[in-house]
Amino acid sequence: MEEILKIEHLTKSLGAKEILHDISFETYSGEVFGFLGPNGAGKTTLIKVVVGLLTLDHGRITIAGNDLAKQFEGALSNLGAIVENPEFYRYLSGYDNLVQYANMRGGIPKERIDEVVRMVGLENRIKEKVGRYSLGMRQRLGVAQAILHHPRLLVLDEPTNGLDPAGIKDLRDVLKDLAHKEGVAVMVSSHLMSEMEMMCDRVGVIANGTLISVHPIAELVSAAGIGREEFVITLDDAKKGAEVLSEAFGIEILPTEDGAIDLVFPKEEALASIAKANETLVRAGLSLYTVSKKENKRLEDVFIELTGGEGQQIG
């Protein structure tokens, strides 16, 4: 896998406030990199620095081998992006807007414009003035604009904003195809964990301007406990119950401090196992008060846990 975007020790202040603090990571061709963080974490600032809208204070950004500060045009010719809301010239048609970008980037044949219009599903409306587009249509046009010149790095800031569920799915497919089939390095920012799960191969978590961790998505999913079920049993004698169950399941089970028993089973055998546990306890002559299923830890909890519970408060 080829390294496309390389960020080294990036620091950025706006005014007296340090927005980004010593951020380093890479994205590779053929992967969708998710960039996850609560509002105000610095996602948009980071993206603006990467696409050259903001200058960096310290550090170095390289896009496809071009130093952003020194080889600006070389770096940006390998980059396609949507930053914040997709805004276009409202008095031009969607097609003419794309022609504007084609002219600025150079060497883009007319067929390529038609091709990207088909890819984002705008063929029927492309000759209309952008002023009459909905947010979703502008988002699609934004994607078309971003991939027009076959960039090796695609940076999308909350690209699913304003899209309907079908649109989100379409976009997901387009991005996955670009990454997995055409070898584009895709970087997507979002504050929606579930969206990331479906789209990304790796996820970087940012909070308060610091990159906390970078995980393959599978790791996060397992950390969220998906695929297990957990039960809590209250009864008259927790200590004895634990002993009986340890014997029946062949693993060591200990009672909790508040006099209950926690049981964790793989999802597929959960029901059979809990039935077996109940039967075992009753046969041992214990009085069963309640058996309740514990809710799964959701991805959002992992997210909040990872970001140190800062999600609620912007600052």
Partner: peptide
């Protein structure tokens, strides 16, 4: 004012 400046400046033109 139209917000198009961002899309203008992310092009490979200084």
């Amino acid at each position: 004012s139209a917000g198009t400046i961002k899309f203008l400046l992310i092009n490979p033109a200084r």
